[in-house]
Nucleic acid binder design. Structure first.
Lengths: 351, 351
DNA sequence: ATACTTTACTTATACGTATAAGTAAAGTGA
DNA sequence: TCACTTTACTTATACGTATAAGTAAAGTAT
């Protein structure tokens, strides 16, 4: 079937030199003192024969893979439901590609989490890993780091462990809730993107939501909290349920834009107006957030930058360089659009 | 740093047998006639030492990688702008994972398209590939298939080449346009997701758009066509431009949901109503399509199934099995929601 | 009892590369 | 001229595995 693979030995034979010489020439090994004449000759033959080095053999002898693994913990259905992961993948991929690495995407079931990652690393398939922040990632990273294996955690962390890149998402939550409070809201509902206890940062964000309300003198009301599951449908259902509360919430905080957008649909379908009857805010600054009706007020997370920095940090670790900032926390940003009603309030102030 | 890697030789020494025996035991090679006693003993020792086979060495000796490459041609910015690719990745990944393969994601710049893929394959990094359908993928696949290399093309194809999985997207376009025509529309604008000539299926969809109009006796009007670039902003801008047409189009066909949703935003921002003033339809059935206001009429493509079938086809090829259907074309489906105005028309019919 | 088969392993080799160590010839300095 | 260095290579080995080929002991058939 496939035409026979050209090896460095074939090139050597055709060029009338040893295999070692071919290797030295093609890897530009200076200390080998290959003459210009031989060098050009070998290069020419290699080109003529269409030689491509066998990456597997090279990895074996060098004891290092050119692959970098990305471990993703969400069940298949949820992995790509938000644009954050694709964004991170883009940012991360472009960095490691520059350094000659390739990206091995590993989706991990909860059950064999740890084992699967260990296999990747011990099997020498990957030189290092980025691991999505999730429940248990601290344990995993500690374990791996103790073994001297290059691992970077990325995502939304609460505790800042070595090595990690995350966004300052709790400050984001605080900013968002305070923004609503500043607009005069007292009954602020919350749609979490995961059932209690399943996703670490969901719990953290929820806690921060409670704390921020309390700090403003508003006693938090657990009956205004619903739990979705990342996707629009659960956000929609959660909102329909919230609409049954008496008195109704005057504002809703969706933990991601996906669910916030679906919540707006539920509100509008019920004949109510956003933001006049109920204000809505999201989190992530999804690509659609600016193009919904009304446009969505949200927190901008630099997802692609998280990926980018995670890539650079991992490259550092692979080169035995201690990263300057072992746990990088990128700032988030409040993006005020129409769904929170801030523009209405401003109009009121300019009569 | 990293604690020393346990090899099969280490296991052999600890178990008091040869390395070959370890290999035979752990791979369950029947013809090697390993006694039950030795088998259990070796397995125990392997477990105790935490042995993990070195996948790289195994690939080298077997001449086959356990990685499968996925070649993506869009520039970084565009790869993940729609949910179709994540969906395909999910469908594909779950299949090959079942068969013990891992997924190597390779983003390819236009310039060195071909070379990059060839390197992946010749470098023995991957056992086979799935290649995103795009301009030039026919050339690439023909070339690779001639060399006996397992390759499956996926996406939206016009010509059906071996081996490929695509959706019947041109029938989808026809259905969509005819749906609008059936609702009485004559001035149907189109927002293409790519500049003319850059993306194969964009041109195909555009041609089908023209043909369908012509077939219905509507003379196609190129002044109603705009070219975006996949993302919401370009869709928004294209729509704003279309709004300046006199007379205005009464309906708009967005080549993907992303741009169609943004087009709705542009229309509503201009103080017009969807669908009363301008009807809008999209393509893809994005996860948000059901949750916009109004909800978006669109064509449902079974993206995850495309990935799934591409995975199964590739596994077949890797096992030297000729796939039953060498170019699989999955049906598309019209999903009628609110943005096209079909529900209004029905109300009119029931006075 | 001898020839042959089966059992249960071990020994040896190959995969394709990188690189340390070796070597012959040419060049250099005093 | 002789010792020493440099040049320009070649030879040899290692990476960790799979597997063909070899082998000693035990079992079986005649």
């Amino acid at each position: 079937m496939a035409r026979k693979k050209v090896t460095s030995k074939d090139v050597a034979k055709a060029a009338g030199v040893s295999q070692a010489t071919v290797s030295y020439v093609l890897n530009n090994v200076d200390r080998a003192n290959i003459s210009e004449k031989t060098r050009l000759h070998v290069q020419q033959i290699a080109r003529d024969l269409g030689y491509t080095p066998n990456v597997v053999a090279r990895s074996l002898v060098q004891g290092r893979s050119i692959n970098i693994g990305m471990a993703l913990f969400h069940p298949h259905e949820q992995i790509f439901i938000d644009s954050w992961l694709p964004n991170i993948l883009t940012g991360f991929g472009s960095v490691i590609q520059q350094y000659g690495f390739r990206l091995l995407v590993e989706r991990v079931n909860d059950k064999q989490q740890y084992e699967s990652i260990i296999n990747l690393l011990h099997g020498h398939e990957v030189a290092g890993m980025v691991v999505q922040s999730t429940l248990g990632s601290e344990f995993i990273s500690t374990e791996l780091i103790n073994q001297g294996i290059p691992v970077v955690i990325f995502g939304s962390l609460s505790e800042h462990i070595h090595y990690s890149v995350s966004s300052d998402n709790l400050t984001g939550v605080r900013t968002l809730i305070n923004h609503l409070i500043g607009l005069g809201h007292q009954r602020i509902a919350c749609i979490s993107y995961a059932p209690e206890g399943t996703v670490e940062h969901a719990s953290d964000r929820l806690t921060t939501y409670y704390e921020t309300l309390a700090a403003a003198g508003i006693s938090p009301d657990p009956s205004l909290v619903r739990f979705g599951a990342f996707d629009p449908f659960t956000g929609y259902e959660a909102m329909r349920d919230l609409l049954r509360c008496k008195p109704r919430p005057t504002a809703v905080f969706g933990m991601n834009d996906t669910m916030a957008i679906a919540a707006m649909a539920a509100i509008q379908e019920a004949g109510l107006r956003v933001p006049e009857d109920i204000a809505v805010v999201g989190f992530d600054d999804d690509r659609f957030a600016a193009f919904t009706t009304p446009s969505l007020t949200t927190i901008h997370e630099s997802q692609r930058e998280i990926g980018h920095h995670a890539g650079e940090m991992l490259i550092d670790l692979l080169n035995d360089v201690k990263p300057a900032v072992p746990n990088l926390i990128l700032p988030t940003q409040l993006v005020v659009r129409k769904s929170c009603g801030a523009h209405l309030t401003q109009q009121d102030l300019v009569p």
